[in-house]
Design a protein around this nucleic acid. Structure first.
Ligand SMILES: [Mn+2]
Ligand SMILES: [Mn+2]
Ligand SMILES: [Zn+2]
Ligand SMILES: [Zn+2]
Lengths: 138, 138
DNA sequence: CATGCGAATGCGAATACTTCTCATTATCCT
DNA sequence: AGGATAATGAGAAGTATTCGCATTCGCATG
């Protein structure tokens, strides 16, 4: 029971929040838009408003349960925060998303921020390209 | 006269396009939103519609005259394409934008894309942090 | 386990940004 | 200069997201 996870994050264990957490955990795709989550709720027969989905996802983000990304698509996508930071590589043809982590890049970013006198708080790195499957299909 | 630049890009040299190009070239800030450009036009006494600003900026982007960025602010910002690729570091307090270029990061990105079997077409890297001035102000 | 208060929800309206439609106007080739 | 055609301005429409508010729910308490 993950009511505890929510309580720990200072959030009441309400039905919408539990259901949304469940969808984020068990969906086939790790990266979901608010609309995706909303559709999944409806398919599951749940009666949750879209505004609530947005509210809850934003709260989850603030609580560190979820991470929000901007994949150059005009809408936010969310994924469960599992502690291990990573960046993304996306196919511009089919929308496939892969993840990677590169120590060298992480280090260089810090160095660049320092050199510019900034105290770095975050970063976002997206690589866009054509995935193997879409290259064959061409 | 940069009518030639537009013609070369396959675009008619209309007044709105010339004015917008002028604003992009001579504004104190290199990174402008559509709204910024629109305001600058109005201040210059020009009668150009906001829809035209959006249309023209999109055409400029397609023609390679301008580059569009998504600075996690919910709207697009544009800057003149001057040939030299660079990435951005942004202050989360005051919105200041600095630019940088790092060969090591560029190389690593290529390597990561290749290893994942992608043919890389583009990338976007934003570093977020607190700028020197805002750190002192804290 | 019933009760009550504040927090959370669902709904529709509102907002922010961007694109579309279409009648009017401007550009540029001859 | 004249006409075919592309571009523009104004406002409506479209997305994604947030807000306002009456109603409902979670949960500490008795
Ligand atoms: Mn991810
Ligand atoms: Mn720049
Ligand atoms: Zn693909
Ligand atoms: Zn600053």
């Amino acid at each position: 029971m993950e009511s505890q996870d929510l309580k720990k994050a200072g959030l009441k264990a309400t039905l919408p929040r539990l259901k949304i957490l469940d969808i984020l955990e068990h969906s086939r795709q790790r990266h979901l838009s608010a609309e995706d989550v909303y559709k999944a709720l409806l398919e599951g027969g749940e009666d949750v408003g879209l505004a609530t989905v947005y509210r809850v996802l934003t709260q989850f983000e603030a609580a560190g349960l979820v991470r929000r990304h901007h994949f150059d698509e005009g809408h936010s996508v969310f994924e469960l925060e599992l502690g291990e930071h990573h960046d993304h590589i996306l196919c511009v043809k089919c929308g496939r998303v892969d993840e990677f982590y590169d120590e060298t890049i992480e280090d260089r970013q810090q160095a660049i921020a320092s050199k510019a006198g900034y105290s770095m708080t975050d970063h976002s790195l997206y690589i866009y390209g054509i995935c193997p499957a879409c290259q064959k299909r061409a």
